[in-house]
Design a protein around this nucleic acid. Structure first.
Length: 580
DNA sequence: GTAGGGTTAG
């Protein structure tokens, strides 16, 4: 017991991080000799003090031979507070099956975990257990229930539980308020807000973000202006609102005006710039941050990956992996990194990431698997892609699209079409990207009628085909020799066709030796891309095979005179990179 | 209890 006293003394008298850690270490070493009360105190103080001491919480909990109700409940609360919701629930389940009765901390923490991962069944079960234990009159538990039902969108039950609370505190009121806000019921939210006996900054913030989310920035600003005190979240809610309305400049002016910007402010702005393709502005903000946390890295890596700057995405990812960066990548980071690998066709790096996931203890989820499906499909390993596809928990639009595209670019048209039909049967609505994939597949197998019908069906899904879709169909019709139809299709386009459309037309003309239409296509290509020489040589070839040698020669000479030299193997991306 | 990050094309 001397040790226990020493430990207790250390905890009380020494406040430095190191002393706390020594204390924790002593407790760890003599865990089974110590009184439960001391262990509780240690757990409590270690969890709160610093990340380093918090590390000992896990160690202590792991090493306890017979965890009591307190230690187990404490674990659940700790995990739930640190974002490890599934882990928290699994401990809760173990506790339950081992016959230990949870306390109110365990119940409310487990409910919080269910709310966050939207686990309806879990929350309903815990509600039942709480009722059995007689916890449903405890404000903490009741408030956790309101939060849970609000988060899963069941506002009727949330309201019922809320109305039963005696002695509602501001957190209870804020929970129901957040529920109405989340589901866009601003009228109910406003009436709750007006009814609240006391409002704190969180109540005001909820209302501001509520109006911001439904894009009513006038109301949002009015509340923002009137609120008695503001914190960073208030400003961030306004910034998010303006971004949602597409008013980036205005968002930026709030960002610039706010007194204490935090990482959330930066990440919000960076993501907005990313969405609108302003990578340089994003990078500028990113560079301003001295302390970079995981989410900030993720936002910037995602920004590069989403804007075709895969090399920079991977550079930053590498930088993040260095020990002095002091962060560990998570699922989000890896998903962007894999996307970058895929864009570069770098399957080696991608495979390395898969191994590295094991080292980090990161499991595959559907998002990550979708990135890998895309990666393996792009690198030609379509079987591995399909294997991953089969392993998905739930096949969503993006996963189907990635797989269909994969089949499309690998020439497996039949499989792509089957998958597309399966997707439609599952009532998943295709988007523009899906149609790019499926049309590519039809093109590949040469199913002209079916492909054309598929293209025409886009409008039924409320989709306006893009220039790329037109280009694929022009290619499809053109290759089949239906040049007139292809030409008619171009004429009906509601937007100006890009060079890819006319290029497909020109190519089709060269396959079928149609000089007349080739000249039309060629003329349009030259207007759209005057610096490209490829179109001239294509037309020259068409002239030549039609026996019009003079025209062919004239065109080739014109190319030389203009100094348009065809560089073999050059592409737009390479030109772009060499300019940077 | 309020504000932030991922996957499919070009």
């Amino acid at each position: 017991m001397q040790l226990a006293r020493l430990a207790s003394l250390l905890d009380k008298s020494l406040t430095t991080d190191q002393a706390k850690q020594i204390h924790c270490q002593i407790v760890v070493n003599r865990l089974n000799d110590l009184e439960p009360l001391l262990i509780r105190q240690t757990l409590n103080s270690a969890a709160r003090y610093s990340p380093r001491t918090a590390h000992y919480v896990k160690v202590i909990l792991r090493r306890m031979q017979k965890p009591d109700v307190f230690a187990t409940s404490f674990t659940i609360r700790y995990l739930s507070q640190h974002g490890q919701f599934r882990e928290a629930l699994s401990v809760y389940e173990q506790m339950h099956s081992s016959g230990l009765f949870p306390n109110t901390f365990a119940v409310s923490s487990a409910l919080k975990a269910c709310a966050r991962i939207v686990c309806k069944i879990g929350g309903l079960m815990i509600h039942g257990q709480a009722q059995k234990c007689g916890f449903c009159k405890v404000v903490f538990v009741q408030t956790a229930l309101v939060d849970f039902y609000s988060k899963i969108g069941d506002m009727v039950i949330a309201r019922k539980v809320f109305d039963e609370i005696r002695g509602k505190n501001v957190v209870s009121w804020n929970s129901i308020l957040a529920g109405y806000v989340k589901y866009g019921d601003l009228a109910m939210a406003q009436s709750v807000f007006d009814e609240m006996p006391t409002k704190d900054v969180i109540s005001w913030n909820s209302m501001v973000s509520g109006y911001a989310r439904v894009k009513d920035m006038e109301q949002a600003y009015e509340l923002f202006r009137r609120m008695p005190q503001r914190n960073a979240a208030s400003w961030n809610a306004m910034i998010t609102g303006y971004i949602e309305c597409g008013k980036i400049e205005l968002a930026r002016s709030f960002f610039d005006a706010m007194p204490d910007r935090n990482n959330v402010s930066y990440i919000t702005m960076i993501s907005a710039y990313s969405k609108y393709g302003s990578v340089e502005s994003a990078k500028e903000l990113y560079d301003q941050m001295a302390e970079k946390d995981l989410l900030l890295y993720n936002a910037m890596i995602a920004c590069f990956a989403q804007n075709n700057r895969a090399k920079e995405a991977l550079q930053l990812f590498d930088e993040m992996l260095k020990p002095n960066a002091n962060v560990q990548p998570d699922k989000m980071t890896l998903a962007s990194a894999i996307s970058a690998c895929s864009q570069l066709g770098d399957s080696k790096y991608g495979t390395w990431i898969e191994t590295y996931m094991g080292e980090l203890g990161i499991g595959m989820d559907d998002h990550l698997a979708t990135s890998f499906i895309d990666l393996y499909a792009k690198c030609g390993n379509i079987d591995k892609a399909h294997e991953l596809f089969k392993s998905l928990q739930k096949r969503d639009l993006v996963a189907y699209t990635a797989m269909i595209l994969g089949y499309g670019i690998n020439g497996r048209g039949k499989e792509a079409i089957e998958l597309f039909e399966e997707m439609m049967d599952a009532d998943i609505i295709p988007n523009l990207v899906t149609f790019t994939g499926i049309l590519t597949a039809y093109n590949h197998v040469g199913l002209v009628e079916e492909g054309y019908r598929c293209f025409m069906s886009m409008q039924r899904h409320g989709l306006l085909p893009s220039q790329d879709h037109y280009a694929i169909v022009v290619d499809l019709l053109g290759r089949a020799g239906r040049l007139e139809e292809a030409h008619e299709l171009i004429k009906t386009m509601p937007m100006q066709p890009h060079a890819g459309v006319w290029g497909a037309m020109l190519l089709a003309c060269s396959l079928h030796n149609n000089v007349e239409l080739a000249e039309v296509a060629w003329k349009n290509c030259c207007e759209l891309e005057p610096d490209s020489s490829g179109y001239h040589s294509l037309l020259a070839n068409i002239y030549a095979s039609a026996g019009r040698w003079d025209d062919a020669k004239r065109l080739r000479r014109a190319v030389e005179e203009k100094g348009l030299v065809k560089i073999p193997g050059s592409s737009w991306t390479e030109c772009f990179e060499s300019q940077q």
